[in-house]
Amino acid sequence: MNNALDSILVIELGTVLTAPLAGMMLADLGARVIKVEHPSGGDPFRRHAGKLYSPHFSSYNRNKESIQLDLQSDSGKADLLTLLARADVLLENYRPGVMARLGLTEAALKEINPGLVWCSITGFGTEGPYRDRPCYDAVALGLSGLDSLMLDPEQPAMTGPTISDNVTGMYASYGILGALMRRGCTGEGARVEVNMLEASIAFSPEGFAQYTRLGICPMPHTRVAISQSYAFPCADGRLVTVHLSSVEKFWQAFVAVIERPDLLIDERFLTPGLRTSNYSLLNEVAAQIFRTGTRDEWCERLAQHDVPAAPVYTVPEVMEDPQVKQAGTFYEVVHPEHGKMVGIHRPVTIDGARGPTTRAAPVLGEHSAAIRAEFKLG
Rank of each mutant, 00 (worst) to 15 (best):
A87K: 08
F290M: 08
L71Q: 02
L5M: 15
L270K: 14
D132L: 07
E267Y: 03
E297F: 06
H38A: 14
S204L: 14
A253Q: 10
G128C: 07
M319Q: 13
P218K: 12
L71K: 03
Y313D: 13
P362E: 13
E198A: 10
A19H: 05
R260N: 05
H338F: 10
P218W: 09
R223L: 08
F208A: 15
P336M: 12
L52P: 00
T18W: 05
R238M: 10
Y211D: 10
F290A: 05
D321N: 14
F232R: 02
D6I: 00
T358Y: 05
G103E: 08
M170D: 01
R32M: 07
C135M: 12
L151F: 14
G189R: 02
Q210H: 08
V285M: 12
G293W: 06
P96V: 09
P356S: 02
L83E: 11
T357Y: 06
S120P: 10
G207F: 06
M181P: 00
E154N: 09
D296Q: 12
Y53D: 13
V312P: 09
F375Y: 15
V333M: 12
M158W: 13
M158Y: 13
E188C: 00
L102R: 05
D137K: 04
R183D: 10
H48R: 08
P134C: 06
Q68R: 15
E317S: 04
L364F: 11
G355L: 03
A140I: 04
V255W: 00
L84Q: 03
D266A: 10
A179Y: 06
G142A: 08
A369E: 15
Q228L: 06
G207E: 03
M341H: 15
L13M: 15
M25K: 13
T357W: 04
G41I: 14
T358N: 03
R183Y: 11
M196A: 07
E193P: 02
A235G: 06
K340S: 14
E198T: 13
G237C: 13
C234E: 07
W251M: 13
R223Y: 04
V192G: 12
A199V: 08
G328L: 09
V139S: 09
G128R: 10
F269S: 01
V318M: 14
E193R: 08
T186W: 04
A190P: 01
T162Y: 07
H305G: 00
I258R: 01
L274D: 05
L274Q: 12
R275P: 07
F375H: 11
E284P: 00
G30Q: 06
A19F: 04
D236F: 06
